[in-house]
Design a protein around this nucleic acid. Structure first.
Length: 910
RNA sequence: GGACCCUUAGCUCAGUUGGUUAGAGCGUUUCCUUGACAUGGAAAAGGUCACUGGUUCGAGUCCAGUAGGGUCCA
């Protein structure tokens, strides 16, 4: 056992223990039949990702849960991995190519994908290294990647399966098109943002009645060349007579377009007339369908206008085209007015540009197991923490739209569909899509590949991550599942994630879990996880979301360098209460570091205080205790230790991590260090009490280290070893953390019964010491160690003082405390253990003392009045529980006694 | 437009089923390098719990409404 140094050097110790844990296989999720499992799958970060504060919070919590599970003796498994992040990764590699003035098309699909793999092997997954720095105890041998071979087979197999079951279909529909990534997006990947622009009032001239016009309002004049009709509400009297007539399209290729009636038109908006551009608006598309209007698409995939928009606009970028369109309309006199306008525009989540509604062929998924997914959460098989998110979840499930799962990218799982050569894939009919001679769907592909062409699209990344909780356990390969311990570890126990991906990920995983790995079994065996803990979102000091573009996110690795991984972990958890967003405060991280330092030094004090006894196990320490020699402080610290253990147990059961950390902080700093260690200093001077005191410290420190270990693993491991709580080659997690009732039972069996009355009596000592210190401080004597105190006490009070005299004298910084019948004329306070005075009568500022006493009496009088009023209220004494009434009576008696004493002291000064 | 959340000390936040004089950290003021720790210790100042009404013997806590801030969905 080596000596504990003066300060804690985090970096060195973190590296040492992380390497040792890994070498010893401490993180390995072992298949141990009969043991209770505890499984977590990491929310796979993007393979392009770097560690953010959000990851720190999220992964620290997962690590806390998994380490606690190990301490509780469970078979714990935390599966790590990354997500191939289709658009993000492809964009990163394309950006690299652009530096060489090349695009992915210069390489072709296969070569480009090779390049992406090269990038992934070189630079991808940095974040997993960073998680190790944080202390994440994942089973790294089980690291998964959504593009790995086995995982890919699961993804494609699911596609084939769902296609065969009829959940997947191909359809030409309006999709959210991102002109930058040039792919379709799901509704969830579109973010609505209020956007400033203009609304244009444009008039369309009647062809049958020249000089007469219909006006419409539009924010998108550049799409007028794609207009196919003007629609009005069938019951709008303003237009009753002209339905079926025609108007002239005021921009683009000349055309006469009809005035049609459709109930979807909002009579109240603008003039009540709506221009119908089926290719560029979802509502327009539907109206167009009803009236048999084949859309005219005036945009290219990259968002530029095409020749159908007319020669003046063709080739222009869409926003430049909008400006130009407005100018052209103005020149021709069709533009009546352009006014500033703000409306909600959908933006591409990744590229952050407005999306285009675009009519394209895509693959769609009808969600399976929707009703079961609702029931699983509603009936509590899956519990959300905080519970309120289940409402958001259910609301989404109640308004489900089919999921567009195809993406026009190269990086991703290529859809396992083949078209018979010679088919025009842009014009497939329902019959052809259902004909295996024309459309082949399988994992292996057709046996005569020369006659087929594979689908070029890949799957949405989320269409692979929704299988994460079971595909990472080997599903669907039976041998792999066996090796991974699927039977033991599924369903997983807890998922820790952000509420921002409830729809993207959580809900879809639930449906996937219910559908795939255990068909036919009861719902509670099919759910992918039992608990979902939603973290808050980390914001900066001004409440803004942390983001790269704002540059307001500190680099977690810098914070680790500055405060240690444990300091960062402790700090971030302490500011992350359940269910609320978190304002980041670096000073709380500093507080985490300071706490580690405090812990370190308290252990150092223990080591310096006397020889180490047998600390090898809890019974060994308990055997060193002599309960019959316990004093009130010993009972009190054990009582607080037990209460803290109970509180931490409760916090884990209810996912209240910051409360657990605060309970531990308060216990250790205030109860143990500020009080027990201080009274120990007197007890250690006395051979009669020394041994018990040391053993008790060993007991408290042991339990504290175990309780703290999940939160601050490195420092607790180091101290665990230094204080001899384990043998060489073993770790803190080889020990078992007992819960509060187990600890109490173990103590009870050894005759260690906490004396509640004695524990309670320490409160009086604390009050006494605090009042004595204040008495000194108010007279500028705080630092004097040679003060003489006079105490007027009755026999029982004096007995309580004398038993604890050495400790108290030390704590208040007194030379001595002597009993005296009268302390009149001296500056005094009324304590629970008598009236305490400073032996200063000679040079007393009588005026100041009288003022102080008068002030105290004044505030006391208010409280007495309040208590009296309460007790005088018959309704209160009749209806309140007896214990509360008794408490009030007792309080009044104490207050009155104190008032009498204060009045007497004041009298004596006069 | 619908749903949810928030408003408590200078700042950031706790406050579980209603029950003594509402707590913590940071910050501020004063004092202290006393043998674990100055990354520390001691003491102090600082709050009409957003507002209005209701329920109750009793409301920061429950209910209704108002104002302000935020998030999600449409």
């Amino acid at each position: 056992m080596s000596e504990i140094t003066k300060s804690y050097e985090a970096r060195e110790i973190e590296q040492k223990w992380y390497a040792a844990w890994q070498a010893a296989g401490v993180f390995a999720g072992k298949v141990e039949p009969g043991k209770e499992p505890y499984t977590i799958v990491i929310p796979p970060p993007n393979v392009t990702g770097v560690l953010t504060m959000g990851h720190v919070l999220n992964n620290t919590l997962q690590d806390v849960l998994i380490r606690r599970a190990r301490l509780e003796g469970k078979s714990a498994l935390w599966i790590p991995g990354t997500d191939h992040a289709g658009i993000a990764t492809q964009t990163v590699v394309e950006r690299q190519l652009r530096k060489e003035k090349k695009t992915r098309h210069d390489f072709g699909r296969e070569k480009f994908i090779e390049k992406v793999w090269d990038w992934r092997h070189e630079k991808g997954g940095i974040i997993l290294e960073q998680l190790r720095r944080l202390g994440a105890s994942c089973d790294w041998d089980r690291t998964h990647f959504t593009m790995d071979e086995g995982y890919s087979r699961a993804v494609l197999g699911v596609f084939v399966d769902l296609f065969k079951k009829g959940f997947i279909y191909r359809g030409k529909r309006m999709v959210n098109w991102c002109p930058v990534s040039q792919t379709a997006l799901s509704d969830e990947e579109v973010i609505m943002k209020p956007t400033k622009g203009f609304i244009y009032q444009v008039r369309y001239e009647r062809t049958d009645a020249p000089g007469e016009y219909i006006t419409v309002k539009t924010t998108r004049p550049e799409t007028i060349p794609g207009d196919l009709a003007i629609a009005v509400h069938p019951e709008d009297p303003r237009y009753a007579g002209i339905i079926g007539k025609t108007v002239r399209r005021p921009l683009g290729p000349t055309a006469e377009i009809p005035i049609i009636a459709d109930a979807a038109v909002d009579k109240e908006f603008g003039s009540g007339a709506l221009k119908i551009t089926p290719a560029h608006d979802k509502v327009d598309f539907e109206i167009g369908q009803r009236h048999g209007l084949p859309p005219i698409d005036v945009l290219n995939a990259d968002g530029t206008l095409n020749e159908l928009a007319g020669p003046e606009l063709a080739g222009m970028e869409r926003f430049a085209g909008r400006k130009r369109a407005a100018e052209l309309l103005k020149e021709s006199g069709a533009l009546i007015e352009a006014e500033a306008y703000e409306n909600n525009v959908g933006y591409s989540e990744r590229a952050d540009v407005p999306i285009e509604p675009r009519l394209t062929w895509q693959w769609w998924l009808k969600y399976p197991r929707v009703e079961e997914a609702k029931a699983a959460v509603r009936d509590g098989h899956i519990q959300f923490h905080p519970e309120r998110w289940s409402k958001v979840y259910l609301h989404w499930l109640n308004n489900l739209q089919d999921w567009c799962i195809s993406r026009q990218l190269w990086w991703g799982h290529r859809i396992p569909v083949w078209y018979r050569k010679g088919l025009d894939v842009e014009k497939l009919t329902e019959a052809e899509l259902a004909d295996p001679e024309k459309l082949h769907v399988s994992l292996e592909g057709p046996s005569d590949p020369e006659n087929w062409v594979q689908e070029v699209d890949v799957l949405d990344t989320w269409a692979s991550s929704w299988l994460w909780p079971f595909a990472t356990l080997g599903w669907p390969d039976e041998n792999a599942m066996k090796a991974a311990g699927f039977d033991q570890f599924y369903p997983t126990t807890t998922l820790v994630t952000g509420p921002d991906i409830i729809f993207f990920w959580v809900a879809r995983m639930i449906m996937g879990g219910l559908e795939f790995p255990r068909p036919g079994e009861p719902l509670e065996r099919r759910i992918p996880f039992k608990h979902v803990y939603f973290t808050g979102i980390i914001r900066d000091g001004q409440g803004r979301k942390m983001s790269k573009s704002l540059g307001n996110s500190p680099d977690p690795l810098d914070l680790i360098a500055k405060y240690g991984a444990d300091g960062l972990r402790f700090g971030i958890i302490s500011i992350a209460p359940q269910g609320q967003d978190i304002r980041f405060q670096e000073d709380r991280i500093e507080g985490g570091k300071n706490f580690c330092n405090k812990l370190w030094n308290a252990c150092r004090f223990r080591q310096m205080s006397g020889p180490m006894g047998d600390n090898s196990s809890l019974p060994a320490i308990m055997a060193r205790l002599k309960a019959d020699q316990f004093d009130a402080d010993d009972h009190a610290i054990l009582d607080r230790l037990l209460a803290t253990t109970r509180e931490v147990d409760r916090c884990f059961a209810q996912f209240e991590f910051s409360a657990a950390v605060q309970a531990l902080y308060g216990f250790f700093w205030n109860d143990f260090c500020d009080w027990y260690v201080e009274v120990s200093k007197a007890k250690l001077q006395d051979e009669a009490t020394k041994e018990n005191c040391l053993a008790l410290q060993d007991l408290v420190l042991r339990q504290t280290l175990l309780l703290l270990h999940p939160f601050i693993p490195f420092i607790t491991e180091e101290l665990w070893q230094l204080l001899g709580y384990t043998g060489a080659g073993r770790f803190i997690e080889d020990s078992r953390l007992q819960n509060a009732s187990q600890v109490a039972t173990a103590g009870h069996d050894l005759g260690l019964v906490i004396d509640q009355a004695a524990a309670q009596s320490v409160e009086k000592l604390k009050a006494f010491v605090s009042l004595a210190r204040t008495l000194k401080a108010e007279r500028g004597l705080a630092s004097r160690r040679d003060t003489r105190f006079l105490l007027k006490a009755d026999d029982s009070q004096w007995e309580a003082v004398t038993i604890n005299l050495a400790k108290i004298t030390r704590l208040v910084g007194a030379e001595e405390i002597v009993r005296q019948d009268s302390v009149d004329g001296a500056p005094a306070v009324v304590t629970p253990l008598g009236t305490l005075a400073l032996d200063l009568a000679a040079n007393l500022d009588v005026g100041a003392e009288k003022e102080r006493l008068a002030k105290e009496l004044e505030s006391l009088a208010k409280h007495i009045a309040g208590t009296e009023a309460r007790l005088a209220n018959k309704a209160f004494t009749d209806k309140a529980p007896p214990a509360v009434v008794e408490g009030a009576k007792k309080q009044l008696a104490d207050q009155q006694a104190k008032r009498a004493e204060l009045e007497r002291l004041l009298q004596a000064l006069s």
